[in-house]
């Protein structure tokens, strides 16, 4: 039993590929762009384009595709449920009924809607995972901080927000490791996490949370003390060892993303939506 095995969000896969060496700001903006596009796509062809792009990025970044997608595993039941809901509940006037059962009937419009929404969730997740897999937490936050910099002028504590984010991301993994230990300790005393049906498994989780939260608070407190001892007192007066700078590669990547976006927007505007 290894709980942390399938957690890909917040995990950084060190490397020296083209994707890894891009300026974090380039990657953050590109990710934001892709996410925005995903929200508007309504045709299968555009998704095919997206799939090609993502596979290309995975290959360039040398991330095994199986690993990039394994974080999705826990979401599959929810996705399936969503798909079924769309299939039976969504319909448009004039849609063809594919089959019906009792008071439910599935239309081709519902089928397309289910497909598109599931794909949207899958792609949103994958795009974000690729960002965290190829960008270390520190450069991620440095990039965010620099992008958020204009907001500082209107009084937003951007440095503190970003520091909170670093720690939150660090704690995702720490908490998962702690959860693993606590569950093992409970299994060792006769709780059957690895056997039984879904409801039993869920019920078994409750006694896990007490020690988990107590330990998490304890660790957070220790971390705060340690940061304080290292003279941290908020963003004020802090300097940075590394300054970000964009290179020719970033320009190229930016141009490429722009082209890709134009293509997708063109598809959105010209191809009639599947529904």
């Amino acid at each position: 039993m290894e709980l942390t095995k399938n957690i890909t969000l917040g995990v950084y896969l060190p490397g020296n590929t083209l994707i890894h060496t891009l300026d974090p700001r380039t990657k953050i903006v590109a990710t934001a762009l892709l996410i925005t596009l995903l929200l508007f796509i309504k045709s299968y062809l555009a998704y095919v384009l997206f799939l090609i792009l993502i596979i290309a990025i995975l290959i360039i970044a040398t991330i095994p595709p199986g690993y990039a997608f394994c974080g999705l595993k826990p979401m599959l039941p929810i996705l399936l449920l969503m798909w079924i809901f769309q299939l039976f509940l969504y319909s448009t006037p004039g849609a063809t009924v594919i089959f019906s059962w009792w008071i439910f009937s599935a239309t081709d419009a519902g089928l397309h809607m289910g497909n598109l929404i599931s794909m949207r969730v899958l792609f949103l997740f994958t795009v974000t995972t690729i960002l965290t897999l190829t960008t270390s937490i520190v450069s991620l936050t440095d990039g965010l901080e620099s992008l958020l910099n204009p907001l500082k002028k209107i009084g937003l504590p951007t440095q503190e927000l970003v520091m909170t984010m670093i720690i939150a991301l660090r704690f995702v993994l720490i908490l998962a490791e702690e959860l693993d230990k606590i569950i093992k300790a409970q299994m060792a005393r006769g709780v059957a996490f690895d056997r039984g049906n879904f409801i039993q498994k869920t019920r078994n989780l409750f006694p896990v949370f007490l020690p988990l939260f107590i330990n998490a608070f304890k660790r957070a407190e220790e971390l705060i003390v340690a940061m304080e001892a290292r003279s941290y007192s908020g963003g004020k007066g802090r300097t940075k060892m590394k300054t970000l700078h964009m290179g020719r590669l970033d320009l190229l990547a930016g141009l490429f993303m722009l082209l890709f976006s134009v293509l997708v927007v063109y598809l959105i505007l010209t191809i009639p939506p599947a529904i």
Binding site: I182, R189, P207, V208, L210, P211, N215, K218
Partner: peptide
Amino acid sequence: NPDYQLFE
């Protein structure tokens, strides 16, 4: 670590 194995 006893903190992970005391639940009650």
